[in-house]
Nucleic acid binder design. Structure first.
Lengths: 194, 194
DNA sequence: TGTCCTATCATTAGGCG
DNA sequence: ACGCCTAATGATAGGAC
């Protein structure tokens, strides 16, 4: 026998419009949300399918359900072929592009470094040559003095070249030159670069 | 009065395990899926919240529901602070990083180009100088003939320098030199570079 | 797969703690 | 916010189209 303890209780019809009473809305939201999540879970176990669900509450909190995992489903969904969904996945791929770009950039930067060193070396030669403006005057007019200056410049240039190559730009004295004499053949200034 | 047209019809209890009959499973999936989507839609209108849902069917098809849009919700969800969810958003941001990197790369490449041109110029000077090995022999021993050779080399070097600077590497004849004489002071070989 | 139908079953509105 | 209770409403299994 059924006892009607409280005739006023029980389910009532619900409107299809937004609930206005804030507290009422909160309660309804909680109940229905858990209900839907349960139904989603049932769908998973009953049909063996994958489901993801994301809900933002009226209080702007995030509720999510996912089987097996929300992220997994989202990955599958975003990687599915079609329209704008691809762009996030593309972005994901671009991480690797960035890595490649960085590697490329490093290579390029090394190249720049090398080119700069090379350029500096040659620039120094040119500067040393031009410092005395020896080539601006017709060569046939060079006197012994000028030639002597030129020779001295060349000696300095050689030392500087050695400094750049062996020493990274440090000072080069005769002792240092002697210590490296075995590696670079510099008997009387010949065969320094070749 | 209610007529019972078919007493065998009507709802029956359902197990909580996976449905084995494939066709049965398909039907149940369809019905329940649309049911859940309806409930989600109701939740949206009733509580004014945002909902996204993704379901993979037994036949591996994708069904999705979202209010206002699936992508919108996913964006909000992925940008929500917390754990791994960030990584996709980070990836999204990295698109802009890639753009910046590309700009940077272009700058660097231009720099490399400039350095290379500079280097080539100086390299050419060096090669022209060394071609005759004029500086390997003690300068004081240079004869008139060698000096003449040196002078000729310098002339060629100057032309090549002008070619690189003005012409991008093309050939330089006297006519061309004359056409550029106003810009570069080359009365008798003086003040070419400075 | 979707829709309509019907007879159930499951959900949940409303109230209370 | 959560759980329990009750009763009415809503959802859906099963069948047929």
């Amino acid at each position: 026998m059924v006892m009607k303890k409280n005739p006023s209780t029980g389910r009532k019809k619900t409107a299809t419009t937004k609930i206005q009473t804030k507290s009422h809305l909160q309660v309804t939201f909680s109940k229905r949300r858990s209900g839907i999540f349960n139904k989603a879970s049932e769908l998973c176990t009953l049909c063996g399918v994958e489901v993801a669900m994301i809900v933002f509450s009226p209080g702007n909190k995030v509720f999510s359900f996912g089987h097996p995992k929300v992220e997994t489903i989202l990955d599958r969904f975003l990687s599915a072929p079609g329209s704008k969904k691809h762009q996030l996945l593309e972005a994901h791929r671009s991480i690797y592009n960035i890595h490649e770009l960085n590697v490329h950039l490093t290579e390029i930067l090394n190249q720049v470094e090398a080119e700069k060193k090379h350029g500096d070396l040659l620039e120094e030669m040119r500067r040393l040559n031009q410092r005395e403006h020896w080539w601006e005057a017709p060569i046939r007019e060079l006197g012994l003095h000028e030639l002597e200056q030129l020779r001295a410049s060349m000696e300095e240039l050689k030392k500087n070249i050695i400094a750049v190559i062996l020493n990274g730009g440090g000072k080069v004295d005769d002792e240092f030159l002697e210590s490296k004499a075995a590696a670079f053949i510099i008997p009387n200034g010949h065969n320094l670069l070749y």
